[in-house]
Amino acid sequence: MTHRTLQTIIPSHASSDGDGVKIRRVALFDTKVADPFLMLDELGSDNPDDYIGGFPPHPHRGMETLTYLRFGALEHRDHLGNRGEIRSGGAQWMSAGRGIIHSEMPSREMSRLHGFQLWINLPAKHKMDAPKYRDVPADEIAECTLDNGINAKAIAGSWQLNSQELQGPLQDLAAQARYLDLYLPAGSEVTIPIDAGHNALAYVYEGQLETSPAAPEKSLLVFNQTGDTLQLQAKSDTQLLLLTGKAIKEPVAHYGPFVMNTREEIEQAIQDYNNGLFGN
């Protein structure tokens, strides 16, 4: 058993998107160490002015989104007729494939929003597949608490934490991506197997892990690919998202909501959208 070591720390940055929604963003389009992950946004505020504008209708092509809410509610609508709402503890998966137009709007009744949206790259052979969509209510999210007080919620993929196995409801994400929301009490430690050829990342949204160098809160920790396990120790009470996925190893061309392999494919996506080929 060989533990992976910390390779790099990528800080998040304050930004905004949609209709003025305030977020913290980690953009990964230009780094190969996070492949297949493209971007992670954290949405978090108890001031409705920071998020009530939501994300009005906009297009996507060539990637997947996975939205996970800890608090609040978001309603999804798309041009294919899909409509659904996720509430506190739930998740929403969308594969844009060859093109989808959707909106994500917050409930006006809520007084707090905290959640995350992850962008996952699609390999070239699947970028023009038909779009797909699924809501996952909170009661479908697999959860366990270990003897040392560690709590885990598996949103996607299959996990083993110390001796505990956990199966997330989403099992078919692009690049075999897995997604875990993990709470570690101060001083606790967990060991998690990581598949060969898969990258492992941890976004610490509260607290701090024992790392060298020290990683500040709201940072993405990227671990190297040498080793078959990840050992995490909490310096303080810590909440983090743990992400793993198989590196696609393909060129990434990115423009706004489109993620393809070449600049020509991006130009085609823009043309198709402008010509109404994504739908109304």
Rank of each mutant, 00 (worst) to 15 (best):
K32A: 14
Q268M: 12
N275W: 00
A234Y: 10
G149Q: 09
N280W: 04
I270A: 06
D78K: 03
I248R: 15
L232V: 11
P123T: 07
P59K: 07
P36Q: 06
S45P: 00
F223S: 08
Q171I: 06
G227W: 12
D147G: 09
G245H: 06
L122F: 13
H58C: 01
I52F: 03
F29C: 01
F223E: 08
D30H: 13
P106Q: 02
G115E: 08
L66Y: 03
L173W: 03
D147T: 11
Q176V: 00
S15H: 14
K127M: 14
E210P: 02
M39E: 04
H126M: 15
L166F: 01
M128K: 12
I150W: 03
R87Q: 09
Q176S: 10
D135L: 11
D41Q: 09
K249P: 00
G197W: 11
L6C: 11
I52R: 10
M63W: 02
P251F: 10
G84D: 11
R70A: 02
I120H: 10
L221K: 05
L232F: 14
D237S: 09
L28P: 07
Y51M: 00
S236W: 11
E165W: 04
R25D: 09
T31N: 03
A174Y: 06
N280C: 02
T145L: 08
P57S: 06
I248S: 13
I270M: 14
K218E: 09
N275F: 01
A154G: 10
T2Q: 13
G197E: 13
Q231N: 14
A253H: 05
I150Q: 02
R24I: 01
N199T: 15
L184I: 04
I100T: 02
S219G: 09
L28V: 13
F55G: 02
L180K: 03
R61A: 10
E217W: 03
L38I: 06
R70P: 01
E264K: 04
Q271V: 11
G62N: 04
L6I: 12
H58T: 03
L38Q: 04
G84K: 06
A27S: 14
K249G: 04
L69H: 04
P11V: 13
G276K: 12
I155Y: 07
Q7W: 12
Y179A: 01
L240W: 08
A196R: 10
V33G: 02
N151I: 01
Y203A: 07
Q117D: 07
M1S: 15
Q233M: 09
K249T: 11
I23K: 04
L146A: 02
A247V: 14
I23S: 03
E217K: 07
A27Y: 10
V33Y: 05
M1N: 14
I141S: 13
K132V: 14
L38D: 05
I86Q: 05
G89P: 00
D135V: 11
E264L: 08
S45D: 05
W159F: 13
N280H: 12
K235L: 15
Q233P: 02
K22I: 13
W119A: 06
K132Q: 15
H76Y: 00
Y68H: 08
E265H: 14
Q208G: 07
